[in-house]
Nucleic acid binder design. Structure first.
Lengths: 161, 161
DNA sequence: TCAAAATGGTAACATATGTTACCAACTGGG
DNA sequence: CCCAGTTGGTAACATATGTTACCATTTTGA
């Protein structure tokens, strides 16, 4: 077992898995953000564009369901995309929701950013073998589930106390 | 090769590696944060504690070097830890820096949080085999390097344009 | 030796994110 | 039908994070 505690009895962050993942995630998202900074999009905005570009017209709640953003984050991203003229909101039959769809310009930007980020990813993934990439994705999924279960267990324990 | 583009020509986030990593990272950090929320620490504060508890006395710049926080983030975290009485700052020979060290209470909290987060990690890692865990850590390191190289290349290309 | 550059840190701002509470529109059981 | 509960979304706040500029020190090198 790898050493995780140091002289002071503390924890060695560099050996700590959630921390390592957080660091990698931040580094990737910074670099990726820099890659498409020229298009003037924030990360939440880009996520909304990505979801909408997949399905032509969606409600905000669908974006919430497909991304790790809460409804407030989505609401803000959509509002600012609308102000930039990249999406439009049309009333739907259920009058609580509006259908979000891409404008021409939105489609254009969305395609360009998709090119950029896919190129970036390809560039990174190129350093892994196919087997490594598959293994990594599998492990990611496993960890997602493991985290959910761990959380559930922790809550159960606290509730029982 | 896995399909990454959908009908609208957009990108399928669920197949996009940096996105998947970002989602996992957020999920882990949320759950982990919840696990030690009772101790009243933020993530940056906990990171500072972790680093300081490893080395008895460090300068803020050391924390910057060992974590993905910039100096402003560290400055704030240290200030608030000091206000809570968990660390103290003592003047050092180089009068630009102060040595940060744990108080008694700081040591206590730090140990408790270390217990909590290590338990959480163990709980998650338990769902992987040793081989899987090692493979994952190796791939993480590989991706970190790959991201750095990709970023360097991208900058070089832009500069040449 | 002493001015220019570098370093450690913080203040003061701007922006982004999370939180709570709320409203308007829908739904489902009596 | 109708009202208690749910759902989609937003406003208005609080907090957190990023940015720029700055000061005091220290280091460097002509």
């Amino acid at each position: 077992m790898t050493k995780k505690t140091g002289p002071g009895g503390g924890i060695d962050l560099s050996q700590f898995l959630p921390y390592r993942i957080a660091v990698l995630a931040r580094s990737l998202s910074e670099k990726l953000g820099a890659a498409y900074a020229g298009e003037g999009l924030t990360v939440p905005e880009w996520r909304v564009l990505a979801v909408v570009s997949q399905e032509s017209a969606v409600a905000a709640r669908d974006v919430v369901a497909r991304t790790p953003m809460d409804k407030m984050a989505v609401s803000r991203a959509v509002a600012s995309l609308e102000k930039k003229g990249l999406v439009a909101r049309r009333p739907a039959s259920d009058r609580r929701v509006s259908a979000i769809e891409l404008s021409q310009e939105g489609r254009r930007i969305s395609r360009r950013v998709a090119d950029i980020v896919l190129r970036f990813e390809a560039d990174i993934v190129a350093e892994l073998t196919i087997a490594e990439r598959d293994a990594f994705l599998t492990l990611l999924a496993k960890l997602e589930n493991a985290a959910d279960r761990a959380e559930t267990r922790r809550k159960a324990i606290r509730a029982a106390e």
